[in-house]
Design a protein around this nucleic acid. Structure first.
Lengths: 246, 246
DNA sequence: GAGTGGTCTAGACCACGAG
DNA sequence: TCGTGGTCTAGACCACTCA
């Protein structure tokens, strides 16, 4: 009702979407140049580019500067399985992922002291995970552990490809896992690391694991692009046993 | 590294952000017209508008066609509390919300038959909740219940303002709550209903409640704008019993 | 170097909102 | 009616990629 007549941009985006879904433009293929498309649709380049920006935000098209616009190979949709009590030192996904890992020693700064409940400047171990599907990056995780809790040796191997190591802290009695989720647009760095448009919404997941003494053992910051990932929490209800507090 | 020199757009957006955060432009105030701002920054109108689009996507500015650009009054940030077992017929938030409700009888279509596991065309009760903070809409929920499970009378009152009725199904032995979250951009309708920019990411939450017989009792679709809401799931671990498999 | 996308201009014209 | 934002044009020039 706001606009009965679709704008040129929307009309072009719809047409391109259709051509991609019908296979007229195939996955991985390069679209005609923006100048050509602009001529074909008899619009100016800024208008055509704004139509492409819509497809980009949906994850259908990837722009590569100086090279062209490419139809994105549809990525496998994965689900982060939340509320998993055991083992809480792993993050579990619904499908295998190839993960590359990079470890560094850093000092707590910005929001990290608050999250980990340590003094600013405290030594932390940072582990950066990038999950790949084929050659394209899929999602991203940064894990922080107090340095004195970090194992000298990384865990031998991921128990299964669906799980990525989220915590290298030694085995301790853990007490609580908190998972906070929000939706936002990616930062510049996240967008380039994941090769996604700055206008593609991401699911931002912060996972805080506390041990029995109340000490924060691990904080994991995960970035899951909205076009390829979601999160699932399952709660089973104890109907016979009503043990809820407060 | 991609662009050492910030673009005009980013520079202008940064400057406006600063002026908003320092109170030079106050909450609720109308910004100078786009033409004036363009002159002040010596850029063309499209460039200035693209800068405003950034602030819009961050929820800092609300554009009102034919009226002006307004600094958004910062909204209270609320947290949806997930994994709440009892009572599962309510959604719990971290702060009170004023909620308006509209009920309708509809038939299952599109994705609803799958979600509710009913035949297409089955009668459903749809409840639309819009939570407000002051005069501005805050978030949105659509709840679907099989018509034969719907109570004749709506629940007398919300037990507390933090909880909104999500299910009108009569008291039954419930078995499972599944909450699936994803990040995306709002649809056109959601954007206008919530008066948010189409480029402000929203947290989309689908909550499915199943009874002991496996029948789906309720499906709730919630839309939580990313600039004002997140979701929190807390899992407590049973440390005495280590039943980890594999 | 040739071709691609990235940014920006200086307008034009339309649609909406308030008085 | 007037001032606002919404859309669009037809270029220009720069930055990047690949051969």
């Amino acid at each position: 009702m706001i606009r009965a007549v679709p704008s040129r941009r929307d009309a072009i985006a719809d047409d391109l979407r259709r051509q991609i879904s019908t296979g007229h433009f195939k996955a991985g293929e390069r679209l005609p140049s923006e100048a050509q498309l602009a001529t074909r649709y008899t619009v100016s380049t800024p208008t055509l580019r704004s139509a492409l920006a819509l497809l980009q935000g949906e994850g259908l098209v990837e722009k590569i500067h100086g090279n062209g616009n490419f139809v994105r190979r549809p990525l496998r949709r994965i689900t982060y399985l939340g509320g998993v009590a055991e083992p809480p030192t792993w993050a579990t996904f619904s499908a295998p992922l190839r993960v590359t890992t990079r470890t560094a020693s850093i000092e707590a700064y910005n929001h990290l002291p608050t999250l980990l409940n340590v003094r600013p400047g405290s030594p932390l171990t940072e582990v950066l995970h990038i999950a790949h599907e084929g050659k394209t990056p899929h999602s991203l995780a940064r894990i922080y552990t107090p340095h004195d809790l970090t194992l000298a040796d990384p865990p031998a191997a991921t128990p299964s490809p669906e799980q990525i190591a989220v915590c290298w802290a030694g085995p301790r009695p853990l007490a609580e896992v908190q998972e906070r989720l929000s939706a936002r647009l990616p930062t510049q760095e996240e967008a380039t690391a994941l090769r996604i448009s700055a206008s593609l919404a991401v699911l931002s997941l912060t996972r805080v694991v506390t041990d029995a003494t109340g000490r924060v053992v691990e904080v994991a910051l995960m970035v899951l692009p909205g076009d390829r990932a979601d999160a699932l929490f399952t709660t089973r209800l104890m109907t016979e046993k009503r043990s809820s507090k407060e």
